[in-house]
């Protein structure tokens, strides 16, 4: 199976006509993703390398049956583009754009979540890759191979690093999900862990967190009672100083909250082994897989 995206994904991209948008969307298509449409207001009727462009997502969905959206538009238009994709009926919406004002996401995220029938991934994320099936986003797919490890991460480059280590270690992946580095992500660890728990093709889960917020602590608490599959973890930013925003808008230790130590402790208390570095977390996954 895999989660979120697969061979049935029909992708519409908001911002397909942009430089980054077209580059990555066409790369996704090259990988085998069924890229059916692009949306740029005012450019309806054009095409990008044969992919039809529409003025609205609603029109794109009506004409092509798109069920998944990728948002690649600049920050000031991105929250609106996510809402438009939701309104048009897309069930999976992946927002790659970074630097979207938190106030916007504070409205968009609860609104889409309350619907219960659509999943928002991101913003400020590398996207989703189901090896061998579909790629929606900017994760380089060459390093991945189909398999049974589910990976969920706040960081993008750590997805690449760990996928690479897993593949080197002989383990393929069911789906790799970058949930993004923002304070209010559309989906959090618990959302993705529960999808992996329900996915028959996934048998080990790697969770990659970082400093800031308490998403890892909440996930640990949830996993204790709800995950039957083994989970291993890694937390980046053990040595980060408090009060400094480490690149990601969400990666900041506020007062005594959000430290890697607190997250590690919570995960370990839930029986989740926490690696010291990205190389070791792949090794833990290999071991967990071998002992199944």
């Amino acid at each position: 199976m895999s989660i979120l995206i697969d061979e049935n994904t029909k992708l519409v991209v908001s911002g397909l006509t942009g430089r980054e948008g077209s580059f990555h969307s066409l790369r996704n298509r090259d990988y085998g993703t069924n890229l059916v449409a692009g949306v740029t207001p005012g450019k309806g009727g054009q095409d990008v390398d044969g992919v039809p462009v529409f003025d609205t997502v609603a029109e794109a969905v009506k004409e092509t049956g798109a069920n998944t959206s990728m948002v690649f538009v600049p920050a000031r238009f991105a929250a609106d583009a996510a809402l438009e994709a939701y309104d048009a009926g897309c069930k999976t919406i992946v927002v790659i754009t970074e630097n979207i004002p938190a106030m916007d996401m504070a409205r968009v995220v609860p609104y889409i979540r309350a619907s219960g029938d659509a999943t928002l991934i991101g913003p400020n994320c590398p996207g989703v890759l189901s090896p061998g099936k579909a790629n929606v986003g900017i994760i380089p797919p060459e390093i991945a191979k189909p398999g049974s490890v589910g990976l969920v991460s706040r960081s993008g480059t750590l997805v690449y690093q760990i996928v690479y280590e897993l593949t080197e270690g002989g383990l393929g992946q069911s789906t790799c999900v970058g949930i993004g580095g923002d304070p209010i992500p559309g989906s959090d660890f618990i959302d993705i862990l529960s999808k992996f728990e329900a996915d028959p093709e996934t048998d080990v889960v790697v969770m990659v967190g970082e400093i800031g917020g308490d998403a890892e602590e909440r996930a640990a608490e949830w996993a204790k009672d709800n995950m039957t599959k083994p989970v291993v973890a890694y937390i980046a930013g053990r040595t980060a100083p408090p009060g400094k925003r480490m690149g990601h808008a969400g990666a900041i230790i506020s007062g005594s909250k959000g430290t890697a130590a607190a997250k590690t402790e919570a995960l370990e208390a839930a029986g989740i082994r926490v690696a010291m570095n990205p190389v070791e977390v792949a090794e833990l996954a290999v071991k967990a897989h071998a002992s199944l």
Partner: peptide, 27 residues
């Protein structure tokens, strides 16, 4: 120097683990 906030954070951590002290975060 690294690419991506997560990888750079992780790089600071492994440098510290190796007994060193990072001079900066640069993504």
């Amino acid at each position: 120097i690294g690419n991506g906030a997560g990888l750079v954070m992780s790089t600071l951590d492994v440098v510290k683990d190796a007994g060193g002290d990072p001079a900066n975060f640069l993504d």
